[in-house]
Design a protein around this nucleic acid. Structure first.
Length: 858
RNA sequence: GCGGGCGUGAUGGAACUGGUAGACAUACCGGACUUAAAAUCCGGAGGCUUAACCGCCGUGCGGGUUCGAGUCCCGCCGCCCGCACCA
């Protein structure tokens, strides 16, 4: 019997599908449409197993939906702008465009042999001028509609390389290339007004029922709506223009526990003080050292400088509060000024103890002894942060009674502050505006011109795309667009005077915030075409990594709304992704040895021979086996999909990444697992051959094989619909086991194997096609409708009920499926094991859950 | 630090809405076939105890709710992801 030869079959079927145009997406008014999209890749140069897993899932869905009669759009493109290309340019002197397009060609060549049912005619890269030119048009529309503006904001600045650093490029507060201490520096930048949409973006999350709950929760927390009090306290000793200090708090019920105030180093008052006082200036400088990311700020030691200024709390005027400049207050949130309530906030408590400030209690736990209500907290005690929903005992309420929930106390405090004209209830969002510009070469140029006469002038539409120059030079630090001899020098589009082009390029998140819309009409002369966007949008199923749960998805939701407002998308596309699935990573064991200095040296899986108890290099050196973690170059625990395709074929890789682990969880790649997948595919092929060679067979086995077939149809269908591809694989294993045992007549076995080909088609399309054709199936199995389920073949006559005695399973009985409660009870009571346990007594209770379980309580 | 998630045999995992824990697979053990090996086919198996049945224990740890908890509640522990200029 001939083996299944993937190396021959796979390219053959790929060519045949291509020639038949099976995957070309067409608007078809007679069929429901289905748009399945996987997050498009960054063209790093090689595809990895994570890509294979992601695109196999999408392909499985696309193929299944086609079989179900949908007109399917399943496109692919490249998220092609970004830092790595620029780094390659700096390190190796290559042109970012050449580097990127070479990578794309390489990755496309690795992707095609996997047999994904993609409409390659729609392919584009975000660095194609045809794409980013349309993005520039969108930018101009957004500018006109007021979605874009400029303001000053803080960046990580490398003083040696004279460049802005990404957070990723800041290692322990130092620039990754220069090693210089990073500064925070203020630049005027482009922003998208996403915070204006905070309420809408938050509220609409409720409608996203086919999104993972955790993603919705993460987005909601990111948007961070809070209700609080905005108020101002009069100051003493502050410079002119700062007679009051504006503050915001989410816990106004702790007003009377305030013992200090703190402002950000970027606060106008801090800046005014710094101008006069060297100590304040020096301290503000110190606060600006280190990275800008929230994690570093939160983890950094809390430091402050007493300015000598005080503010008066109108509800406790007898003790003015000292005002500190502090490194943990963010200018971006609230008003950049807070008051500290050390008794009820651990961070404030640490700060108060460090600087010898009073710690005044406002409330105690509801069940605390009365003497715990001392005014001051003991040195050993931790801050008491109560839940908002449970009542606590207020020993120093601003308003309201002694026993309130936090929320009641907050509401009472806001009412009182408003009544006395001290402050105003206010809603705040944590969400900040989206910094849209980057001081980098390899991105879409922002299409505006700075004119000395007219100021900021949008480019003329007919000049789009504003292309990047193809001769950049990276021999000096900073943005290559700034140093280009001619590129930025243009005439003002409005007055014609000598003017300068904007050299900031767009954040790469902009590129990925609308590519899904562009796929509906990728060659159009406008960003979208109403007919196409109207037909294909929304994305019915979006699949990608959890790491994009917040930013990419939130920005895309914003963009969709802005595109509706500027006429580029239909009203119905405000939420562009109907369903979202976040898949887990592909992991692998790590292998390491130690060098002479005791440092780890990592080894790739193909350098290592794995045996029962351990692993060793080819020369016999033993290798330490580390935990299975995400495949990464630095740990060398990478398996190249191309090698797997060479060795076993695409179907083996596809089958393996769909098996075992649930799609949302990590899957561990193992050589043994890959081999097992390959063996199973061979077995399925063999089953087909055996069915073809089968003789008359045993007629009595017909029913059992039919039942197994329809059980498989039911289970695989349900598993695919529920995104439980590992269970679909398990159901197909079971079906193969049943088919192996079956001695049914030839015609029955052939029919069963045809269903096998249909059910396997979404996962292993090449094998399925080869099998289908060998069995004499008509046309392509890829083009065949999904098998029909006969539900009558799923029902059994009898059911086995487990019997528990006091909640522990002791026996089981077999009863007819339609047995009523009395019949079940009678059967239970006559069961030998039950009688043994009852020992002549009657049960205290008999719980019968029809069709599921019986519990006898003694 | 803040936000989110996960934890089940040797291993990946299954278990519908609180109802037989361990489906399916890997690795392992035994058998058939073979001069032999590979491949293939058949069978076994959570742990302890036992000749076998029986029994006891068992879903990260400690409590709780329930006739019944992997699943629900409270408190811990460990690991992973995100934190706004990586994509």
């Amino acid at each position: 019997m001939e083996r299944y030869n993937a190396r021959e079959a796979e390219p053959k079927w790929q060519a045949a599908w291509d020639a038949a145009g099976l995957f070309v997406a067409r608007r078809d008014p007679d069929r429901p449409k289905y748009y399945v999209l996987e997050m498009f890749p960054y063209p790093s140069g090689r595809i990895h197993m994570g890509h294979v897993r992601n695109y196999t899932m999408g392909d499985l869905v696309a193929r299944y939906k086609r079989a179900r009669g949908f007109s399917v759009l399943h496109p692919m493109g490249w998220d092609a702008f970004g830092l790595p290309a620029e780094n390659a340019a700096i390190e190796r002197g290559v042109n970012p465009a050449d580097w990127t397009y070479a990578n794309i060609a390489e990755m496309r060549a690795q992707m095609k042999p996997l047999g994904f049912s993609l409409d390659w005619a729609r392919e584009f890269a975000t660095c194609d001028p045809e794409y980013y030119g349309q993005q520039q048009a969108l930018f101009l529309d957004f500018l006109e509609a007021g979605f874009v503006y400029r303001k000053a904001s803080v960046v990580n600045w490398d003083p040696v390389d004279m460049t802005v650093l990404a957070n990723e490029q800041v290692i322990d507060g130092k620039g990754w290339r220069s090693g210089a201490e990073v500064e925070r520096r203020e630049l005027t930048q482009w922003f998208f007004r996403i915070s204006d949409m905070a309420e809408e973006l938050l509220g609409a999350l409720d409608g996203l029922e086919a999104w993972p709950e955790k993603v919705r929760l993460m987005q909601a927390n990111w948007i961070g709506k809070s209700r609080g009090l905005e108020f101002s306290f009069p100051t003493q000793g502050a410079p002119e223009g700062h007679a009051t200090l504006q503050m915001y708090t989410t816990r106004p019920d702790t007003f009377l526990g305030a013992t200090f105030a703190a402002i950000s180093a970027d606060h106008p008052l801090a800046k005014a003080l710094a101008a006069e006082r060297p100590d304040v200036a020096a301290f503000c400088e110190e606060c600006r050292r280190g990275a800008t990311n929230e994690e570093a700020l939160e983890k950094a030691e809390k430091i402050g400088l007493d300015t000598g200024i005080t503010v008066t709390n109108p509800f406790a005027p007898e003790t003015p509060l000292p005002v500190f400049v502090a490194n943990f207050v963010l200018m971006e949130y609230g008003t950049g000024a807070i008051y500290g309530c050390p008794a009820h906030d651990q961070r404030d408590l640490d700060f108060a103890r460090k600087y010898g400030l009073a710690v005044r209690r406002v409330f105690v736990p509801a069940d605390a002894p009365v003497d715990a209500a001392d005014e001051y907290l003991g040195q050993e005690e931790e801050a008491f942060v109560p839940p908002k929903t449970e009542p606590v005992r207020y020993v120093r309420p601003l308003a309201g009674g002694a026993r309130m929930t936090g929320q009641e106390a907050i509401d009472a405090a806001i009412a009182k502050a408003e009544g006395e004209g001290v402050g105003q209830g206010a809603t705040q969002f944590r969400l900040r505006d989206w910094g849209a510009g980057r001081q980098r070469f390899w991105g879409a140029p922002i299409p505006v011109v700075h004119c000395p006469e007219c100021g900021i002038v949008p480019e003329k539409r007919e000049n789009l795309p504003i292309k990047l120059p193809d001769d950049p030079s990276f021999d000096r630090p900073g943005n290559a667009l700034d140093w280009h001899p001619t590129w930025r020098h243009v005439a003002c589009p409005r007055c014609g005077a000598d003017a300068l082009r904007e050299t900031d390029t767009m954040d790469t998140f902009v590129d990925s915030s609308w590519y899904f819309a562009r796929f509906t009409s990728p060659r159009a002369e406008t960003p979208t075409i109403a007919e196409d966007a109207g037909y294909w949008m929304n994305v019915d199923q979006y699949i990608g990594g959890i790491e994009h749960a917040i930013l990419h998805l939130l920005y895309s939701r914003f963009f969709a709304r802005a595109m509706i407002a500027t006429g580029h998308l239909p009203e119905t596309a405000a939420e562009p992704f109907d369903a979202l699935f976040t898949q887990g990573m592909v992991t692998h064991e790590t292998y390491s040895t130690r060098d002479a200095r005791g440092r780890d040296v990592w080894h790739s899986p193909d350098e290592v021979r794995r045996s029962d108890g351990g692993a060793a290099l080819a020369d016999g050196t033993p290798v330490a086996i580390g935990p299975s973690i995400k495949m990464s170059k630095s740990k060398k625990n990478v398996v190249d999909p191309a090698d797997i395709v060479d060795q076993f074929g695409a179907d083996t890789a596809r089958w393996f990444v769909m098996s075992d682990s649930p799609p949302e969880r990590d899957v561990e790649w193992t050589a043994a697992g890959a081999e097992a997948a390959w063996k199973h595919l061979q077995r399925v092929w063999r089953l087909g051959q055996e069915a073809l060679a089968a003789g008359e067979g045993v007629a009595e086995e017909t029913d059992a094989l039919r039942r197994a077939t329809h059980r498989a149809i039911a289970d695989v269908t349900e598993a695919i619909e529920g995104f439980a591809f590992n269970k679909a694989v398990a159901a197909l294993y079971s079906f193969a086991n049943a088919a192996t045992k079956s001695r049914a007549p030839r015609a029955e076995r052939l029919a069963a194997m045809k269903v096998m080909a249909q059910l396997m088609q979404p996962m292993t399309p090449h094998l399925a096609e080869e099998l289908w054709s060998a069995l004499g199936g008509a046309g392509f199995v890829t083009d065949a409708p999904w098998p029909e389920l006969d539900e009558t073949l799923l029902v059994a006559d009898t059911v086995t009920l487990p019997i528990q005695i006091n909640g522990k399973r002791r026996a089981d009985i077999s009863v007819p499926v339609d047995a009523d409660r009395a019949a079940v009870e009678a059967a239970v009571l006559t069961d030998a094991t039950v009688q043994k346990w009852l020992d002549g007594a009657a049960p205290r209770k008999l719980i019968v859950v029809p069709g599921r379980i019986v519990n006898v309580v003694l």
